[in-house]
Design a protein around this nucleic acid. Sequence first.
DNA 1: CATAAAATATGAGTATACTCAACTTTGAGG
DNA 2: CCTCAAAGTTGAGTATACTCATATTTTATG
Lengths: 231, 231
Amino acid sequence: MSALSYMPKNTARKKAKPGAPPKQRGGKREKNKERTKERILEAALQLFRQKGLEQTTTKEISRKAGIAEGTLFNYFKTKEDLALYFFQKETEDLIRWFRADARLQKAPLTEKLFAVIHRQLEYIEPYEDFIGAVFYRSLQPSSTLSPLSLESQELRLKYLRFIRDILMEGEKKGEIPWVGDLGAYAVGLFYVGIVTHWLHDTSRGKQKTLALLDRALSLGTNILKKGGWEW
Amino acid sequence: MSALSYMPKNTARKKAKPGAPPKQRGGKREKNKERTKERILEAALQLFRQKGLEQTTTKEISRKAGIAEGTLFNYFKTKEDLALYFFQKETEDLIRWFRADARLQKAPLTEKLFAVIHRQLEYIEPYEDFIGAVFYRSLQPSSTLSPLSLESQELRLKYLRFIRDILMEGEKKGEIPWVGDLGAYAVGLFYVGIVTHWLHDTSRGKQKTLALLDRALSLGTNILKKGGWEW
DNA sequence: CATAAAATATGAGTATACTCAACTTTGAGG
DNA sequence: CCTCAAAGTTGAGTATACTCATATTTTATG
């Protein structure tokens, strides 16, 4: 072997796409990443439901997902972020589900809102044990301390825009007067209240919360019809 | 020295009050405890305001308070508990302050509620940086995971009872129809909304939130006067 | 005052969320 | 197939909230 074989080859090789990311479809890399993310989410969900958020360690999640502990943090900035992911996914599913239901599109506003909130409660039911720890944090405004806040803000905005759209349909059909963005904000706030009630509700099948939900929505739309919003 | 001096004296000494705690007034022990608690709170408040909740370590707080790190946990179960303490104290102060103001006792309901909420906002202003992190947690329902929840529930109940009393005065004077416990709950929920708005409000002196507070309270009482609550 | 029990303080130790420098895998270009 | 840069993985290391066995202080009692 000559010394030459150790010399660096001066074949000024092009960097593989230096600026924009390659983003090729169906590559092994992308497929693996997706599978790993799925495995983390599955492991986390199972453990959160089993032992709650605080009692589940990131070490456990990683072991169950078959990865190193450090890898988990390549996928989710924090453990809280991981928990919040379920909400993000649910919000997206919720919007898709609502838009796909033709009958619901024509239903009265009250029914629409009831259906939306009811579906959300149904979804969070299995997570009851760790939901309290995560739900309220998703409301926190952005702060330099929490790298999560931006994302949870985005989630909140997506939800508010969705509600805004539903209300606007009601406005157009003359079911309620113009309530603007504040209307969506009020519904969001109402949802917080319902979840709080739901978390405390020990009645069979959370019947009390469902009853409250029904009555409060009727009350709200009735008030709006009477023009209570003009102030 | 004889071996006898090592023998246990068999003078069957009475245990100093075995059952009930001594609870003596003005003792050195009680005085020291109070002073230490004050020193911890002072140090914590200063640091929280300076660097926020997350960035402040318990080691720092202890050092500033002139105690060992372990001692801090003899006074407050968790760091969160320490932060929550400010709210507890404020709620107690708030109730005292309201009851001491004779003019306010006779004012219309809207003014009472505005005064109460406005004072709360004023109080939390200096804590803005860490309030978001603590405020929403104080809403979480009890859970075996969080040893804090019981206390924060108690705090919430104290506040709700206070609001309930104010509303009851309005009911008696015929300012609003009977709203019951749910009325207090609604005001509490409204307060959550106002604080959320306040946290996001970048207008000078939080003017927008104050305007919203004023208008929303008028709207609310007007609706109630019209009998909107009957459902 | 002397003593013991109870209350409180202490800080080294533990558990765990998260970081980071070193290692491995992938895929484009030759 | 070979090379190499970029992407991704790894687990030992770090920071820090909280625990607990031991030491110290206070108080009640003879």
